[in-house]
Nucleic acid binder design. Structure first.
Lengths: 226, 226
DNA sequence: TGAAAGTCGGTTGTCGACAATCAGCCGTCG
DNA sequence: CGACGGCTGATTGTCGACAACCGACTTTCA
């Protein structure tokens, strides 16, 4: 049962939003799946208006596509979309790095802690948690910059990327140990590199990720041989 | 009269959104002004639900603050907010510049056309149009990068900055001729500069603008002597 | 006189009903 | 046999009503 009331929330639409969001991010609702207001409302025990508002919010997050006068669907991202979002995320993060001028020890410590947890998670093969840790890892950098607006934009993009990664893991396992190594490398460069070196490294980190997904045949429109 | 039907639109909420947006951007609704659903609905001849949805959209754009169980208000931005938004806009634009690898003549030509129009507009003292042209000018750069996602994020921020600038012009005239010169300078650097030089110039261009606004006493919380 | 409790107006939250519209199907016609 | 046009079921669009809630004002009591 997915009772919205079981979620801590400030409003009913937000509770519904959280329920639906979780289902999309966990790939219970696959990309392209129809989301019809009335059935969802009945299932969740709320009115259509409430579901409607939740869907609008999901649309803002880019998780749902709403076509006027047509049912909504879980967003299906093309290879171009993914690459664009990935690049935008990189740009924002690079902008954050430029702002971190003072002592980096604090943020480096937090990042190292996350990577340590990543190592444990990789051993368990827990891909979903791994994705959460990736968000947390990069969130350290974003937050250290102290730019609120930058952070909001970044998190929006991150949620969308997370949705994609989650939908990909059902089809193809990504090497978790390799992911841990890549993040450790980020820390290493972050510790000793210049600003430009860090930015270049981040670009590799981001675009390398999306390219490896593309090679694995995860992304539509760029799968090998299509 | 502000009849939503007089706007080209796909849906009623969008029409209402456009009406309210225009009023906010034109500073007919000042920062901090209450936006109550029922009166707006009656004034526009639509139902509260429709106004409600429009307000939600405006909230996404950052033009309206919605507090649960309280009336909405036109967003009042602090100095920190402005600086953050300005920086985020710069970061996105710098990210776009990095993507413009090929022939720059096309985009430079478009930018020059805009600056020429700016010169005419400055002569007329038409500040509102000037702000639109500023959007168009920088939009040339963003669009030239061909990164859809980047462009969407940038335009959202730009709308908010535009709102601020519009609200500022009532209190303090900014030198329009100076604005024309600054944009011409952008083109000049863009034509001959390296990537890094262009980015550095853009940072000056953006942060210089917000700082001059701050000096003019336009921004709350950083006004001289407040 | 001060604070706490009660009351009231204003505003948003939530809902179900009805209207409008679209896609797909089916029948008809060229 | 293909294309056009109307029909129909499904889905969203729009609306007004009622409920819940918040803040401010008033009243009361120590």
């Amino acid at each position: 049962m997915t009772d919205p009331g079981s979620f801590l929330h400030r409003s009913l639409p937000e509770a519904v939003y959280l329920v639906l969001r979780r289902k999309i991010l966990n790939n219970e609702y696959a990309a392209g799946q129809r989301l019809v207001e009335a059935p969802l409302a009945e299932e969740l025990g709320v009115s259509r208006s409430t579901v409607r508002e939740a869907l609008r919010q999901l649309s803002v997050d880019g998780l749902v596509d709403i076509s006027p006068r047509r049912h909504s669907v879980v967003t299906r991202m093309s290879y171009e979309d993914i690459r664009d979002a990935c690049y935008a995320r990189f740009v924002l993060e690079a902008g954050a790095v430029r702002c971190i001028t003072g002592n980096r020890d604090d943020v480096l410590g937090r990042m190292q802690q996350v990577v340590d947890r990543m190592a444990d998670t990789a051993a368990d093969g827990d891909v979903a948690t791994m994705i959460d840790l990736d968000t947390e890892f990069h969130g350290c950098i974003i937050d250290a910059a102290g730019k609120q607006r930058l952070a909001v934009l970044w998190r929006t993009l991150d949620a969308q990327m997370g949705a994609l990664m989650r939908s990909s893991i059902d089809r193809q396992h990504i090497g978790l140990d390799e992911a841990v190594r890549r993040h450790q490398y980020v820390i290493d460069v972050f510790r000793v590199g210049s600003g430009d070196e860090i930015v270049a490294m981040l670009e590799d980190h981001y675009l390398g990720a999306v390219d490896s997904m593309a090679e694995a045949g995860v992304l539509e429109g760029k799968a090998t041989g299509t």
